[in-house]
Amino acid sequence: MEQLINDLKVQIKEALHLEELQLEDFDENTPLFGEDGIGLDSIDILEIVVLLEKEYGIRMSNPKEGKAIFHSVRTIAEYVQKVKSE
């Protein structure tokens, strides 16, 4: 799980060009969206959907259904692990 979380942090930082965000400051529990969090938006969700398909072979057809999945890096990791174990 910890390895998956770290991989996701690196992949998200790169895919979303979060150049100013240092990996050591990137907390897996911080909300990704909204002003209290990293401040990502709906287009970033779509980029993460692409990332999950490219890196983990997970295909999501309706990202709106899984809004809770994209809450934080941890929730994404839990989702990836759940799908992979099914």
Partner: peptide, 10 residues
Amino acid sequence: EETLSPTLFM
């Protein structure tokens, strides 16, 4: 034609 970047298209 899959896994293309929405940010680039936008």
